[in-house]
Amino acid sequence: MSAAAALSCSPTGLDDAVVEAAEVVAGHDGAAELMVRLRHGNGASSFVTLDPAAGFDLLRAAGADNLAALAGRPWRQIIRDL
């Protein structure tokens, strides 16, 4: 898929990813980390694992105080508020 085609995968012309789920996982250095799974506008799924600082920042930016509250949130909006 080209970048231009990627941008056409949602009605707004943008990749409207939403948070599908978030889970606590064990990080490489023994800290609890936050694994966020995203569902992208093109139907693809991806994940990223955030270290404690980024994980807490993400919860704050999303106005969430627990994992369940992240589900369904629009990803670009959360990132913009980080």
């Binding site: 978030a22 606590v24 064990a26 023994g30 800290a31 609890a32 936050l34 404690p52 994992l67």
Partner: peptide
């Protein structure tokens, strides 16, 4: 991999609560 923490620092271990 183990998760270790104390209450001295915020840990995402508690992110469900």
């Amino acid at each position: 991999i183990d998760i270790s923490f104390s209450l001295l620092r915020p840990s995402l271990f508690f992110a469900r609560f």
